[in-house]
Measured scan of single mutants.
Amino acid sequence: MKGKVVSYLAAKKYGFIQGDDGESYFLHFSELLDKKDEGKLVKGSMVHFDPTPTPKGLAAKAISLPLE
């Protein structure tokens, strides 16, 4: 699924993505496929991810940034 980063707290390594389906997904650095892309996780960045339901809500897994 595609989505847009709505927040990312680099110090805490987490944030949120708004998916194309309108839902909010929890984003964690550990799910970023290329850790070098962390600096690109800023508000408004477009990402691809696997939407995954968890006991705490919806989460983004296997997060990647589109090729530039």
Results as ranks from 00 to 15, higher is better:
residue 1 M to K: 07
residue 1 M to V: 07
residue 1 M to W: 04
residue 2 K to A: 10
residue 2 K to G: 10
residue 2 K to C: 15
residue 2 K to P: 06
residue 3 G to P: 01
residue 3 G to L: 00
residue 3 G to R: 00
residue 3 G to W: 01
residue 3 G to N: 01
residue 4 K to I: 14
residue 4 K to S: 08
residue 4 K to P: 02
residue 4 K to N: 07
residue 4 K to V: 14
residue 5 V to P: 01
residue 5 V to K: 02
residue 5 V to N: 02
residue 5 V to W: 02
residue 5 V to T: 02
residue 5 V to R: 01
residue 6 V to G: 05
residue 7 S to A: 11
residue 7 S to R: 14
residue 7 S to E: 10
residue 7 S to D: 08
residue 7 S to I: 15
residue 7 S to H: 11
residue 7 S to Y: 15
residue 8 Y to S: 03
residue 8 Y to W: 07
residue 8 Y to M: 05
residue 8 Y to E: 02
residue 8 Y to L: 08
residue 9 L to W: 15
residue 9 L to F: 15
residue 9 L to C: 15
residue 10 A to Y: 11
residue 10 A to H: 11
residue 10 A to P: 15
residue 10 A to I: 12
residue 10 A to E: 10
residue 11 A to E: 13
residue 11 A to C: 12
residue 11 A to D: 13
residue 11 A to R: 11
residue 12 K to T: 12
residue 12 K to P: 04
residue 12 K to R: 11
residue 12 K to C: 12
residue 13 K to R: 11
residue 13 K to Q: 08
residue 13 K to C: 08
residue 13 K to F: 05
residue 14 Y to M: 07
residue 14 Y to V: 05
residue 14 Y to H: 05
residue 14 Y to T: 05
residue 14 Y to I: 06
residue 14 Y to N: 04
residue 14 Y to P: 00
residue 14 Y to Q: 05
residue 14 Y to C: 07
residue 14 Y to K: 04
residue 15 G to D: 00
residue 15 G to H: 01
residue 15 G to K: 01
residue 15 G to C: 03
residue 15 G to W: 04
residue 15 G to R: 00
residue 16 F to M: 06
residue 16 F to G: 01
residue 16 F to E: 05
residue 16 F to P: 01
residue 16 F to I: 07
residue 16 F to T: 06
residue 17 I to E: 00
residue 17 I to C: 03
residue 17 I to Y: 01
residue 17 I to V: 07
residue 18 Q to Y: 11
residue 18 Q to T: 10
residue 18 Q to H: 11
residue 18 Q to V: 12
residue 18 Q to F: 10
residue 19 G to W: 02
residue 19 G to L: 02
residue 19 G to S: 04
residue 19 G to C: 03
residue 19 G to R: 00
residue 19 G to Y: 01
residue 19 G to K: 01
residue 19 G to F: 02
residue 20 D to V: 09
residue 20 D to H: 08
residue 20 D to S: 10
residue 20 D to I: 10
residue 21 D to I: 01
residue 21 D to F: 03
residue 22 G to W: 03
residue 22 G to H: 05
residue 23 E to K: 15
residue 23 E to V: 10
residue 23 E to D: 06
residue 23 E to F: 14
residue 23 E to N: 15
residue 23 E to Y: 13
residue 24 S to E: 09
residue 24 S to A: 08
residue 24 S to L: 15
residue 24 S to H: 12
residue 24 S to W: 14
residue 25 Y to R: 00
residue 25 Y to N: 01
residue 25 Y to E: 00
residue 25 Y to W: 02
residue 25 Y to L: 02
residue 25 Y to F: 03
residue 26 F to Y: 09
residue 26 F to V: 05
residue 26 F to S: 03
residue 26 F to T: 03
residue 26 F to I: 06
residue 26 F to K: 03
residue 27 L to T: 02
residue 27 L to S: 01
residue 27 L to P: 00
residue 27 L to I: 06
residue 27 L to R: 00
residue 27 L to K: 00
residue 27 L to W: 04
residue 27 L to Q: 00
residue 27 L to H: 01
residue 28 H to Y: 07
residue 28 H to K: 06
residue 28 H to G: 06
residue 28 H to E: 06
residue 28 H to I: 05
residue 28 H to S: 12
residue 28 H to R: 06
residue 29 F to L: 10
residue 29 F to V: 12
residue 29 F to Y: 15
residue 29 F to S: 06
residue 30 S to D: 10
residue 30 S to N: 12
residue 30 S to I: 09
residue 31 E to N: 12
residue 31 E to R: 05
residue 31 E to H: 07
residue 31 E to Q: 11
residue 31 E to V: 03
residue 31 E to A: 11
residue 32 L to M: 05
residue 32 L to T: 01
residue 32 L to H: 01
residue 32 L to G: 01
residue 32 L to F: 04
residue 32 L to W: 02
residue 33 L to N: 06
residue 33 L to Y: 05
residue 33 L to V: 12
residue 33 L to F: 05
residue 33 L to C: 10
residue 33 L to D: 04
residue 33 L to H: 05
residue 34 D to G: 04
residue 34 D to T: 06
residue 34 D to N: 13
residue 35 K to S: 09
residue 35 K to R: 09
residue 35 K to H: 09
residue 35 K to W: 09
residue 35 K to T: 08
residue 35 K to A: 10
residue 35 K to F: 08
residue 36 K to A: 13
residue 36 K to F: 09
residue 36 K to P: 04
residue 36 K to W: 09
residue 36 K to R: 13
residue 36 K to M: 11
residue 37 D to A: 09
residue 37 D to W: 08
residue 37 D to L: 09
residue 37 D to I: 08
residue 37 D to S: 09
residue 37 D to T: 08
residue 38 E to F: 05
residue 39 G to M: 13
residue 39 G to A: 14
residue 39 G to V: 14
residue 39 G to Y: 14
residue 39 G to C: 14
residue 39 G to W: 14
residue 40 K to Y: 09
residue 40 K to T: 04
residue 40 K to S: 07
residue 40 K to V: 05
residue 40 K to H: 09
residue 41 L to A: 02
residue 41 L to N: 01
residue 41 L to E: 01
residue 41 L to V: 05
residue 41 L to P: 01
residue 42 V to Y: 11
residue 42 V to C: 12
residue 42 V to I: 12
residue 42 V to L: 11
residue 42 V to Q: 11
residue 42 V to H: 12
residue 43 K to F: 11
residue 43 K to V: 11
residue 43 K to D: 05
residue 43 K to N: 08
residue 44 G to F: 04
residue 44 G to S: 04
residue 44 G to Y: 04
residue 45 S to W: 05
residue 45 S to V: 15
residue 45 S to E: 08
residue 45 S to T: 15
residue 45 S to R: 15
residue 46 M to Q: 12
residue 46 M to P: 10
residue 46 M to C: 13
residue 46 M to E: 12
residue 46 M to K: 11
residue 46 M to F: 11
residue 47 V to I: 07
residue 47 V to T: 04
residue 47 V to Q: 00
residue 47 V to R: 00
residue 48 H to C: 14
residue 48 H to G: 06
residue 48 H to S: 13
residue 48 H to F: 15
residue 48 H to Q: 14
residue 49 F to C: 02
residue 49 F to I: 02
residue 49 F to D: 01
residue 49 F to R: 01
residue 49 F to L: 01
residue 49 F to Q: 00
residue 50 D to F: 15
residue 50 D to Y: 15
residue 51 P to R: 07
residue 51 P to S: 07
residue 51 P to E: 02
residue 51 P to L: 05
residue 52 T to R: 10
residue 52 T to D: 09
residue 52 T to G: 07
residue 53 P to K: 14
residue 53 P to S: 14
residue 53 P to L: 13
residue 53 P to V: 14
residue 53 P to A: 13
residue 53 P to C: 13
residue 54 T to S: 08
residue 54 T to Y: 06
residue 54 T to C: 07
residue 54 T to D: 05
residue 54 T to I: 04
residue 54 T to L: 06
residue 55 P to R: 10
residue 55 P to Q: 09
residue 56 K to L: 09
residue 56 K to C: 12
residue 56 K to G: 07
residue 56 K to T: 08
residue 56 K to N: 10
residue 56 K to A: 09
residue 56 K to M: 10
residue 56 K to R: 13
residue 57 G to C: 04
residue 57 G to P: 03
residue 57 G to N: 03
residue 57 G to Y: 04
residue 58 L to C: 08
residue 58 L to M: 11
residue 59 A to C: 11
residue 59 A to Q: 13
residue 59 A to D: 04
residue 59 A to V: 15
residue 59 A to S: 09
residue 59 A to P: 01
residue 60 A to Q: 02
residue 60 A to N: 02
residue 60 A to L: 00
residue 60 A to V: 02
residue 60 A to H: 00
residue 61 K to F: 08
residue 61 K to P: 01
residue 61 K to G: 06
residue 62 A to I: 05
residue 62 A to C: 12
residue 62 A to G: 11
residue 63 I to E: 01
residue 63 I to N: 02
residue 63 I to S: 00
residue 63 I to M: 03
residue 64 S to T: 13
residue 64 S to E: 06
residue 64 S to Y: 14
residue 65 L to D: 02
residue 65 L to C: 07
residue 65 L to K: 04
residue 65 L to F: 14
residue 65 L to V: 14
residue 66 P to N: 13
residue 66 P to F: 15
residue 66 P to C: 14
residue 66 P to K: 12
residue 66 P to E: 14
residue 67 L to S: 13
residue 67 L to W: 11
residue 68 E to C: 12
residue 68 E to M: 12
residue 68 E to L: 13
